[in-house]
Each structure stands twice: as C-alpha cells, then as structure tokens.
Computed example of a mutant assay.
Amino acid sequence: MSMRNGVRYALTTLALTGTAVVAAATPAAAAPATGAVVIAAPATGAAGAARAAGDCPFSRTVCLFDQTGYQGTRFTASSTTSGGTCVSLVSHGFGDRARSVLNGGNSSAALFALDNCAGGPYQVAANSGIADLGTFRPNSVWVP
C-alpha cells in the first residue's frame, strides 16, 4: 500500500481456485476519490460460479459485479473517511458495467446514474445485496 497526495493505492493478490490474480488501483488507472480505496479483481470460472450472496470478502465495502447474481469481475470500493465518500466508476473503467452489488457496510450505500454521485440514488441497504440491477447502470457509488 502506498500513499500519494493523501490517497491510498492498494496492490492486492487474491487466490481463486489455485490461481493468483493480481489486481491494482494505481495512479495510472485514474486516482480514486479522496478517502477511497479501490480494488478490482476478476472472479470468473469455477470461483465465480461458487459465489454466494454474502461474498464480498472485505468488511465495510461495496462490491459491484459485471454480471448478475454476484458473478464476473468484482469491483470493490471502501471509504477511509468517516461519513463516506463518492467513488467514480467511470474513472476506474467500471462505468455502466455493474449488474449486481453487495454492500458489506453497516450503513446504506447508493448507486448513481451520473459520474459525480448525482442522478439517483439507487439505494443498497446495509449488509445486503441486489442480485440484478435490471436496466440501471451506475456510474458512481456512495460508499458509507
């Protein structure tokens, strides 16, 4: 984990069915919102098929998936500030991609149609998920 201009960037290695997957949020991939840690990791194949509704492995995070039923590539965002933060999905290449979402936090999260946490919200209750977002395609998320 490194610090640059007060924003944390994480490099994480996850083991999925015996295969190491390296995921990174780096300055080259566009800086996350101040007070946010963003990790994207694929979860496809056998590991993706084994996902349960509670499979957002980090506490106090919002996990978005590019397939319904919590399948496919997982985009994880977590706030490092009290009160929460807005995270642009567009800046991280996940705009218009989320099809399902899990909220592992103790407060409601919100998905937004626009890139600046405007144009909504589509609420995700605390410690719950939405297995199919239907036609709604978020471009930002408020992470509690």
Score class of each variant (00 low, 15 high):
residue 3 M to R: 06
residue 5 N to M: 03
residue 7 V to N: 10
residue 8 R to S: 11
residue 10 A to W: 15
residue 12 T to H: 08
residue 12 T to M: 09
residue 13 T to I: 09
residue 13 T to V: 15
residue 17 T to P: 03
residue 18 G to K: 04
residue 19 T to S: 09
residue 21 V to I: 15
residue 27 P to D: 13
residue 29 A to Q: 10
residue 29 A to P: 00
residue 31 A to E: 08
residue 31 A to N: 14
residue 33 A to L: 14
residue 34 T to G: 06
residue 36 A to V: 10
residue 37 V to A: 15
residue 38 V to T: 09
residue 39 I to Y: 15
residue 44 T to P: 00
residue 45 G to Y: 03
residue 47 A to K: 10
residue 48 G to L: 14
residue 50 A to Q: 07
residue 51 R to N: 08
residue 53 A to D: 13
residue 58 F to K: 01
residue 62 V to Q: 02
residue 63 C to S: 05
residue 65 F to Y: 13
residue 66 D to H: 13
residue 68 T to R: 07
residue 71 Q to I: 02
residue 74 R to W: 09
residue 74 R to T: 11
residue 74 R to N: 04
residue 74 R to I: 03
residue 77 A to R: 07
residue 82 S to G: 15
residue 82 S to I: 11
residue 84 G to H: 01
residue 90 V to L: 14
residue 93 G to V: 10
residue 99 R to M: 12
residue 102 L to N: 07
residue 104 G to K: 00
residue 107 S to L: 00
residue 108 S to Y: 05
residue 113 A to R: 08
residue 115 D to K: 12
residue 116 N to Q: 10
residue 116 N to L: 08
residue 117 C to D: 07
residue 122 Y to R: 09
residue 123 Q to C: 02
residue 124 V to G: 00
residue 125 A to D: 08
residue 125 A to K: 05
residue 125 A to N: 12
residue 125 A to M: 11
residue 125 A to V: 09
residue 126 A to D: 05
residue 127 N to T: 02
residue 129 G to Q: 07
residue 133 L to G: 04
residue 136 F to S: 02
residue 138 P to A: 03
residue 138 P to V: 02
residue 139 N to C: 05
residue 139 N to I: 02
